[in-house]
Design a protein around this nucleic acid. Structure first.
Lengths: 142, 142
DNA sequence: CTTGACTCTGTACTGTACTACGGGGTGTAG
DNA sequence: CTACACCCCGTAGTACAGTACAGAGTCAAG
């Protein structure tokens, strides 16, 4: 019994047909089985994989990085420890991004509060707001 | 007395000279004063601004979005209400990015946990972990 | 068996964000 | 005064991530 055509996968995931083929060329998804006609014949698991790719992309990962995330399973020669450390590195990356976003968010909140009063009229209010935010935190951002 | 040349700014920020000129063309940084020779003459504040651009870029904002963040101020013709609502919109953007990053982080933590006990030789079911991550959490991510 | 939606491959094009010249002028240390 | 690093502008090329055809074959409903 056959699985999904590329069109069905596209409709179920919201990813364009051309894009799915593009991801295949980039090695992000495996080459699927083919029907006698040559049509691609996908297992349902492809949907999960494409959802993951979409989400990771939305978080600012490049396709190359996503490929790395997706290949974080133990290939021959790679130990589980290696995989573990790569996962933890990504996790630390995200924690830092979250911290920075929260700082920026607080800066925006400060601007909004200022707006209730006189309003932000400085050269660049967001930089001013971040400056106040910087107090007490070392400039550790890279 | 004169400020920084483009080369000094480049060295202090790690941003290439060509890139600084590019940002100027894109309107992310103001056209600086010029020396009689025509050389760009930057005030030290440019360094802060470039650091902000770098960080925002790292957080997944496009140059266009960064330009919007940097221009959040009340100037002629713009009301405080307008700025306020734009600030709140950016804040919501950031909150969404944070939520996505946190979900991703949890997924990675789960993957790491699955890896931990398996030892150097066995299976490391990363793709399984991804599958489980996708269910249960409402698919609200777009 | 025709018609229309669907799929195939391959190539070309788009937008974003740089990056790299080429051919000149500038500034300063020796 | 001459190297030599630095700067100017403009244009062109690169990498990434798609997106859009063209021309041909496939599948299923009527």
């Amino acid at each position: 019994m056959s699985g999904l055509t590329i069109g069905k996968v596209a409709r179920e995931t919201g990813v364009g047909i051309e894009t799915i083929r593009f991801y295949e060329r980039q090695g992000l998804i495996a080459e699927p089985a083919r029907r006698p006609s040559g049509y691609r014949d996908y297992a349902p698991a492809i949907v999960e994989r494409l959802h993951f790719i979409l989400r990771a992309k939305d978080l600012g990962f490049s396709l190359k990085e996503i490929g790395e995330l997706l290949s974080l399973r133990v290939d021959d020669g790679r130990t589980c420890d290696d995989v573990y450390s790569r996962v933890m590195a990504k996790r630390a990356d995200m924690e830092q991004k979250i911290r920075h976003l929260e700082r920026m968010k607080r800066a925006l909140a400060r601007m909004a509060a200022a707006c209730k009063g006189a309003g932000p009229r400085g050269e660049c209010p967001i930089l001013e707001a971040l400056k106040h935010e910087d107090e007490g935190e070392a400039g550790d951002w890279r």
